[in-house]
Design a protein around this nucleic acid. Structure first.
Lengths: 229, 229
DNA sequence: GTAATACTATGATATATATCAGGTTTTGGG
DNA sequence: CCCAAAACCTGATATATATCATAGTATTAC
């Protein structure tokens, strides 16, 4: 696989595309590549990061522990996304933990290369800003979903999200396979409740499953359900 | 009251402090001041903004209508905060509505002055970025609260938030008075449920009230409650 | 000053969801 | 291949919260 940032396609999806050739070169020289197995942690909530992680492949969950001991997944980061940016910019410890939910390959980029580029290249800063503006909007949407939709609606929505963002295999199964617990933590409910509703969806013919894999059968009905019909 | 941005104290609280003298002058020349009565709308969800609003006084709720017809308040913006930034940066229509919850005075700053400064002054861009990073973290916290805490916990938390962010009067009442409906919309519950829990808090001596005003009596216990004891 | 309208309050009931407890099935390491 | 551990499933029950209904109480408008 391509080892230089300058030639990395992943870069096209994130704010690094606004970097100049020289800046990219510096980043590329200072970066290190890391391979993670499903389940391995990249960083923990409260940890001070000294760089950001650019996802080359695989998916990571970004979650936050609530006082009652449950883990709330706030975002799933995939190819092209940069994790840890927020903490670096705010000069704070990370407010989230990152754990791989599939095997991953990520590049670690030390804080310095990012910080100096932020100071010197307004285009880059602006690009980062745009991405953050987008994330903020998504977070607002999640807040509304959490407070106004039922668990059933949120689970239906989650499946559609998984399809739209991570795609399907040839046989029509969701490419990203999450455990029931992870699904529960995405929608903010108890694992048992998530399991029950998933079974119900299966019985109703909205989804099907084969082992761990889940396939969407009736997208239209799922959509309606998510919207409250 | 001071009419020039260059001398406006409010500016110290927001990203405008990173502007140069000349930039501020331009902003000041192009801005217009607006006075709003409690209940009046500043902009609506889906509306295309052609500028941002800088709050000089009073408080505005930023909310989003959910498909089921309920309004979820995502943020309360007060003195010094800039509203509409996210939409301008992302070049999208606003995802939120802004309505005054107390009498307000705001300055409207046309998009152009902001956009050109964003292009030319990296310090300003960086400052905006820092603010947005902060907002994003807060949004993540709200997501976790929404999904993991009970309504009772969230209401307790809301009162503490109101005290810490908007202060108390001489007599020990919260300066910002919200209707029960607004409180319900902040914590994401039905108005009746909010009313019930507020009555309960009163009975238990955690808060007191006089007309519309609410005063915090036992902050410690409220805190404990919010954390789940 | 009175009518109309919004806001607050409280009870009764229904419902969604969490929790607890017991299973079965699947998975991965030795 | 087997065993232990993890993941999944299902039932019974408890609980929080929404919803519906009704009434009192402020606020505003005429």
């Amino acid at each position: 696989m391509e080892q230089r940032c300058e030639n990395c396609i992943v870069r096209q999806f994130n704010s690094l595309r606004a970097m100049s050739k020289e800046e990219l070169k510096k980043v590329s020289d200072s970066k290190t590549t890391k391979v993670l197995k499903k389940g391995e942690a990249l960083f923990e909530e409260g940890e001070k990061l000294n760089g950001v992680y650019c996802v080359r492949g695989g998916v990571s969950k970004l979650s936050k522990l609530s006082p009652n001991g449950k883990d709330q997944i706030v975002k799933l980061a995939t190819k092209g996304e940069v994790m840890g940016q927020r903490a670096i910019i705010a000069e704070e410890a990370s407010n989230l933990s990152a754990v791989a939910v599939s095997d991953m390959e990520v590049c670690f980029i030390p804080k310095d290369s990012i910080a100096t580029t932020l100071q010197k290249n307004p285009n880059f800063t602006m690009e980062v800003l745009r991405h953050m503006a987008h994330d903020l909007k998504e977070a607002d949407d999640v807040i509304v979903n959490m407070s106004q939709k039922t668990v059933k609606q949120r689970i239906a929505e989650a499946f559609l999200y998984l399809k739209n963002n991570f795609g399907e295999t040839e046989e029509g199964f969701l490419k990203l396979t999450l455990s029931r617990e992870d699904i529960a933590n995405v929608v903010g409910t108890a694992t048992e409740s998530a399991i029950r509703i998933i079974s119900e969806f299966k019985k109703k013919g909205l989804i099907r499953s084969s082992g761990k894999q889940i396939g969407i059968v009736d997208e239209r009905k799922l959509q309606d359900l998510a919207e409250g019909f």
